[in-house]
């Protein structure tokens, strides 16, 4: 159905014309946004912000000002409960820079130029562990929000490989072989980072990127072993020839982060990806993203159990 929506969108865009309009969109309500995550072996990290009116300014200051300080954020795993510490990008604990930069999607060098505060704890007792459930409590401006997530058992790939696409010899997709556990719900997230050096002498990607449709569950393939592929999300700019778009060139080195999540987080991620693919598209139903947070808040509290593979693009 998503492909149908995508196809129809293309068809109508081909035959139509578009212009910017200003129209009354009633019903704006400011809401708290909780963006929290915890991964295997990593500390919890929570960003708190507020939603903005659709016509509100979208400059850098507006973005930075949406992040909120002064919340009391607590994470517990059933045995240990820890209040998270508010840390800001201009005053990070030594050694946490790369972790925070990865979470914020900026390079370590750019950290100083953005002023964002979040909540975390480097207490090893609250770092993510497989099989544990993590409860989050946020007290902010007199309201309390709670959420719960689990770090589920990971399912690593049997193999990862690269092969040229079609008649090409130098470009191809990244492939993987997956053996899905039978008889249980499994949901996956594919992310990728190119770590080989670019022309500037730096790694090609600062952080992990998501390809088109990176979240999926095992409804179609419960218990099956099969090969599948994903495209190169960084290979779509205009400088790349049409026939090489979405492909990895021979010689790229990738780190594939293949994460699993619980059902609630999957529901959030699936609807989020759907919204990213179809937001504003009339051929899709408007999708408000469900979340696992009690109270009138947006966002998610998400546990992930990633497996990592390194793939060198060579036959």
């Amino acid at each position: 159905m998503r492909k149908i929506i995508y196809l129809l969108s293309i068809a109508f865009i081909l035959f139509s014309c578009t212009k910017e309009v200003v129209i009354d969109i009633p019903g704006y309500k400011e809401q708290i946004v909780i963006d929290g995550r915890i991964e295997t072996g990593q500390p919890p990290f929570v960003l708190i912000s507020k939603s903005k009116d659709i016509y509100s300014p979208t400059d850098l200051n507006a973005f930075l000002n949406s992040f909120q300080s002064g919340a009391i954020v607590t994470v517990s795993n059933g045995t240990t409960s820890v209040q998270l510490t508010e840390i800001c990008t201009d005053n990070l604990p030594p050694g946490s820079e790369s972790f925070i930069a990865e979470l914020l999607g900026v390079s370590v060098a750019d950290l100083a130029s953005v002023q964002i505060c979040g909540y975390t704890s480097f207490d090893p007792l609250i770092a993510g562990e497989i099989g544990k459930t993590y409860n989050l409590t946020v007290n902010f401006e007199g309201e309390t929000f709670t959420a719960s997530t689990q770090i589920v058992q990971p399912t690593p790939f049997d193999a990862v490989f690269w092969k040229p696409d079609g008649n090409l010899t130098t470009h191809g997709y990244s492939w993987a072989t997956l053996s899905d556990p039978a008889g249980q719900f499994d949901a996956y997230l594919w992310e990728v980072k190119r770590i080989n050096l670019g022309a500037d002498g730096l790694p090609k990607d600062d952080g992990f990127q998501k390809p088109f449709g990176p979240v999926f569950d095992d409804q179609f393939f419960d218990g099956l072993t099969f090969d599948f592929f994903f495209d190169n999300p960084s290979a779509y700019d205009d400088s790349i020839s049409d026939k090489f778009r979405g492909l990895y060139p021979l010689g790229d080195t990738l780190v594939i982060k293949f994460s699993k999540m619980d059902r609630d987080v999957y529901e959030f991620m699936e609807k989020k990806e759907l919204q990213l693919a179809t937001a504003g598209n009339p051929f899709a139903t408007p999708t408000n993203i469900p979340n696992n947070i009690t109270g009138d808040a947006l966002g998610v509290w998400a546990g992930f159990s990633p497996s990592y593979d390194t793939l060198i693009c060579q036959p």
Binding site: V33, D35, S49, K52, D53, I54, S66, L103, G105
Partner: peptide, 10 residues
């Protein structure tokens, strides 16, 4: 149409 926007995980 959407009435508001927010940022989650970039």
């Amino acid at each position: 149409l959407p009435t508001s926007w927010y940022v989650q995980n970039q």
